[in-house]
Nucleic acid binder design. Sequence first.
RNA 1: GCACGGGUGGCAGAGCGGUCAAUUGCAAUAGACUGUAAAUCUAUCGCCUUUAUGGCUACGCAGGUUCGAAUCCUGCCCCGUGCA
Length: 407
Amino acid sequence: MFSFDVERKDKNTHARTGILKTAHGLVETPAYVIVGTHAEVRTLTPEDLKEANVQMIISNTYHLWRDLGDEGLNDYPGLHEVMRFKGPIMTDSGGFQVFSLGFLYENNMRRGGSKSDENKSLSEKKSLVRVTEAGVYFHPVLPGEDGMEEVVGGEEEMYLDAETSVKIQEQLGADIIVAFDEPTSPAHDYAYTKQAMERTHRWAERSLEAHATDQAMYGVVQGGAFEDLRKESASVIGKMPFDGFAIGSTYGDAYGGTKAKTAQMVEWAIENLPESKPRHLFGVGKMEDILAGVEAGIDTFDCVIPTREARHGRIWTERGHLDIMKSVLPDPEGPLDELCVCPVCTNPDMSRAMLKQMFKRKDMQAGRLATMHNVFFFGNFMARLRQAIKDDQFEHFKKDVLEKLKK
RNA sequence: GCACGGGUGGCAGAGCGGUCAAUUGCAAUAGACUGUAAAUCUAUCGCCUUUAUGGCUACGCAGGUUCGAAUCCUGCCCCGUGCA
């Protein structure tokens, strides 16, 4: 119960619209997949998901595995029931945590990294992750406040591999699951990137082998910013019998990457992926990155930006972002985004100043309203983008969006 | 009136002879956030400047002791609580 049909192709670029069919309904592509790591889109209720026009949600294998444990997973009623979301859901394999709890943690690249952290000795900064050919060991003890240690998810080191990740994803019951992979950083050298890529390929085969349900499964293209590796990875993974393909480790301009490189990596990958299968771009992103991805032929995206930044007071609009906590708020009595028709922006009783006050009061509803807007906004952005492709106006749309962002 | 307790940077509240322009929290200001250890994190937060093992002014007010006081002493002014 999974299919993908390309509906319309842009004449001058690789942009395309399509319909992804899953057991839980359709997704019109290009689409923005909203992140719901722990089986919830933070701050939003199931009713909110509908109001915000969420098409698809992505949850996380690693985090849910930690949250639920083996017993919890055995009795798990499934993500759709837990989230009370009727639409399509995908799960990430836990591969990203190999990178985020490994390389990013080790190199203080999470949350901006503090100066005091930079002075920590190597032993204090060691990775929380150990990668082996067979699978990955996750350290159970994480440093908490004041150097005290905080035990997360039990005392035992946790071991995740391709077979386990697939099994957990089958227990979680998403419509689309993802092969276990090892992302790399722009800082990794050629030799390591190749090694991780080849390991990812072997894990991809094992993931397919272990897969026993009729859930769709995506393979992940790696290979970093090295042209030959990216192309090799896409063609190796692209030949495996996956239902779709995801491109990993591109990062936009986060984690030492660049937007230009990201666009290039995506192109290299897509050249070597089958035309008829859906393509997902992991972890991207911002409007300009989405435009570049769509132009190269990406069908779905997921990113934390709309939800996380909403909780941090950033409101996304066509003109970029409005930071609601700034001391000087333009048009404080106006709606968050005068062009938006989301439930928050069309509520005459809600204003920028009011939302700011709610954030100041630490009212939980502030994060919810901001999330509602951002999710709706990005969804609407994708809808307009789709329409532009259908109207043969993609390039014009892109130019227009980028112009407005510059202002 | 007597007896205690107290007056510290925007607020709360540490410090009780030197390493104090003063811990910490809050507030404020700025920045960050790209397959979520994130309703989070980072930086600044007396004034000045060549931003520094710099200068100046500061811990109710006025004196004093001391090489040195937010810290000790005296007086005064406030504020709490108790007793008359």
